[in-house]
Simulated scan of single mutants.
Amino acid sequence: MSERPTMVVVSGMSGSGKSVALKTLEDLGYYCTDNLPADLLPAFVDSVGREAETPRKLAVGIDVRNRHQELTQVSHWLSQVGSMGFDPRLVFFDTEDAVLIRRYADTRRRHPLSHLGLSLADAIARERQVLKPLRTLADAVVNTSDLNVHQLRRRVITELGLADTSLSLLFESFAYRHGVPSDADFVFDARALPNPHWDPRLRPLSGRDREVAEYLDGSPEFGEYLQQVSAFLDIWLPRMRSATRSYVTIAVGCSGGRHRSVYLAERLAAHARASGWEDVATHHRELD
């Protein structure tokens, strides 16, 4: 990699895995921000560059949510970033239309261009047209059609020249009503734990919120469950290392995939990092 500070622009089709890519970069020590107006790219780099401890690795998400007419000027703004002493790179994430349509059906999310009154297929076609200048400009195009979350993380690491041989751990939360992740190596059921969903104050929140964390931390059952699962993984995860294995998925499920499973996955990931595992990520299927 270059000895100059790095600035990576993450772009691509909605539903192609850009959020996973940005989270991967954040886990790798990048200072990340998403959905930055493209014309503010040089100002962002300049502002961060004035910090006493300037991050040497920056990542910015720029996609179809931007003002469309400005996306044709990204090349100019990347040149400005280069003149500021950074090594700019643009990585574009793409996915086949049929896969994107299936992903939207599975997650029940709205496409960013749905406000235009377009069908999903037409919105995807319009997005391709809008993002064509960025795809043409990209230093690397990553097709995620056949990649799971682990494989996508590995591709991001490879494209940035950060490949290693360590075992990658993914702690993934999910809702049982939408099915168990097909690539899970270990599955833990959190439905026996107290459910924040039944507290009207906590129902709109998620396991990422402090109030939900305090609720669960106040439960003796949660503490006992966390301790026992952590002890199990402390024994068996090191035994998963092998010359042919590069990743392990630990899936945690609950009824809605928003509260118990999310917080438990975050706590288990934090425990793994504290135990010395370097490549640790979380993915919340019903939230991300």
Rank of each mutant, 00 (worst) to 15 (best):
S119P: 13
D63I: 09
Q73M: 11
P200V: 13
L25Y: 02
Q73D: 14
Q73C: 06
W236L: 15
L120T: 14
H111P: 05
K18F: 04
S145D: 11
T249F: 00
F92T: 01
S261Y: 08
P42F: 00
V60K: 08
K23C: 06
D146Q: 12
S11I: 06
A192K: 04
A138F: 07
G85D: 07
V10F: 06
T249S: 01
Q151S: 05
G256Q: 07
R245S: 01
R191F: 02
W77H: 05
R267H: 04
D164Y: 03
Q227R: 15
Y263P: 00
H197Y: 14
K57N: 12
M84H: 02
R4W: 01
R239S: 13
G17H: 08
V9K: 12
T158G: 14
L167C: 07
S182I: 02
H271E: 10
V9D: 14
I235G: 02
N143D: 15
S206C: 00
R102H: 15
A121P: 03
T6L: 13
D146F: 03
V64L: 08
E53V: 12
D279R: 12
R267Q: 13
P37N: 04
P196C: 03
S83K: 14
R108I: 01
L90Q: 09
R239C: 03
G276N: 07
K18Y: 05
G257N: 10
F86N: 08
P112R: 05
S219M: 08
I62M: 11
E159S: 13
R273E: 11
W77S: 00
T107V: 10
V149N: 07
Y263H: 03
D183Q: 10
R108F: 11
F174W: 06
D185R: 02
Y30R: 12
Y247W: 13
S79C: 08
R65E: 10
L268T: 12
N143L: 10
H178A: 00
A272F: 04
S182G: 04
L169H: 10
S255V: 10
Y247M: 05
S83R: 15
P88Q: 11
S145I: 02
L22K: 07
H197S: 04
R177F: 09
F86E: 08
T72A: 15
A121K: 11
Y247Q: 09
I62H: 09
D46P: 01
T249M: 04
G223N: 15
D122K: 11
S230D: 15
L113W: 11
R89K: 15
T165V: 12
S261T: 11
S219Q: 14
S114F: 12
D217W: 02
A175I: 00
L71F: 08
E172M: 15
G12H: 03
Y104D: 01
M7D: 04
T144I: 07
P5Y: 03
H284I: 06
P37D: 02
V9M: 11
F232L: 15
L28N: 13
R154V: 05
G223D: 04
E51W: 11
A59P: 05
V8I: 13
P204E: 04
V142G: 03
G85I: 01
H111W: 03
A269N: 05
L162G: 07
Y263S: 02
D34L: 05
L36R: 01
R154D: 03
L205H: 05
L120F: 08
P196L: 00
Y215L: 09
L116Q: 15
R153A: 12
W198G: 01
V142C: 07
L170Y: 04
P238D: 10
P37F: 04
D94M: 02
